[in-house]
Design a protein around this nucleic acid. Sequence first.
RNA 1: GGCGACGUGGCGGAGUGGCUACGCAGCGGCCUGCAAAGCCGUUUACCCGAGUUCGAGUCUCGGCGUCGCCUCCA
Length: 452
Amino acid sequence: MRQIRIHDSLTGELLDLAPREPGKVGIYVCGPTVYGRIHVGNARPFVVFAIYKRFLESVGLDVSLVCNITDINDKIYTAAVAAGRPSKDLAAEMAAFYIADTDRLGVGRPDAEPLATESLDAIVALIEDLIEAGNAYEADGDVYFSVRSHPAYGELSHRSIEDVDQGEGIEGADRKRDPLDFALWKQTKPDEDAAWPSPWGLGRPGWHIECSAMAEAALGADFEIHGGGNDLVFPHHENEQAQTSAARGVPLARIWMHNGMVQFGAEKMAKSVGNVLSLHEALADNGRDAVLIWLLGGHYRQPLSCSDERFVEAKARAQRIVEIGRRITDGESPEGLLQYRERFFDALADDFNTPAALAELFSWIREANRLEGDVGGADLRLMLEVLALENLLNGESESDQPSSEALELLLARETARAASDWAEADRIRDLLDEAGWLVRDAESGPSLVRKQ
RNA sequence: GGCGACGUGGCGGAGUGGCUACGCAGCGGCCUGCAAAGCCGUUUACCCGAGUUCGAGUCUCGGCGUCGCCUCCA
């Protein structure tokens, strides 16, 4: 079996995927905070890890993918106050949009999508354990993690404790014993309309502890892969790692897998910058095939540029796959093309190199196009299924079946062609073109193809 | 300032110490009545300088430039 290797942010090295239990892989990915519609940058980790799960499953692994939904966060309260509505309603609405928008990507749903609001017991229990272990302390209804009590702090983001602060001089600064410390639990505030009971009074959990608790609840500590955008490495993932390893004595995850940012122009796409393209808009304008091909067209760790040109290009690539779909037949693929299929999977096994895998897929297509006669499409379908793009081979839908009028015109054109009446033949072809049909002549006869 | 990463052909984007990435666009050709689709070709692509090496875009050092994180952030 192929050795699967992944770049680990903690060690900075390619690590072999080494499951706790042979054949089983747990992946936890930080999902969005639901205070607005998500943009294509938010969609990147969703797609990367959904497709990675498909790849791992295609090589026989049993994968459990967990993507949380953060529905307790400052941003939600701020947005709710601005909208003059209960934060609970806003979060519920935006969570529903998130599900709907990502559903349209058609890459499958995660196996679990825990909500912070439904994980309070686990969160409170983890905080209690940290206090008991001497890594956290209560202060006037808040609870803070004591960063200096955990010597390994900084190991993930490769920074020294001297170089960071957790918002000194901002919220809770007077209650912290050390400016480095970060909040695990925050006492409720007057402008917040959501709070939960705890041993420290009414309040709400900090963002970092939510993920530690939800990840552990779903997968157990020391699970295989923790993912997310590389903008989360510090402080979010650093803090998650510190919390769980302090409380449990084992790392939260064995491999930290971070995706690069989507860039709009030269800058990171971010709501705070305002240069966002919402996912539902991108899907409506370009279709999910093009959005997917665009996202998979770059290596997950690299920045990915977003622009109209990129989507035009992705659509053209999708079209090339649709064209080969008209050419291939059911059944086994020629042995001569096997090398491309093998290298496709090799590329994905080697730090999930989707652009290299796509290159092999397109090489398969080119070679198939060069062959004479029928070409079985089994291998191509296998590759496309991993990428959730096998729909491109499924051919015309009902609405793409030529109408009887169109077929009559095609017949009339054949009559004209048989009589070498090219002017009439071309006139009919123009008529068909206006009706949305492209004529393609082949040895086997003419055919009509729906214009894209 | 600290930490991390990156600079590849018109554009996007992989990759390896010596062998065509791939896609998109343009141009030329084949095929076609003409097209479309497809195929073939497209003349030292690897930021600059120095070094290591038989040989470097690929390793080392030094520049220049860009991006991300250090504050909520996928």
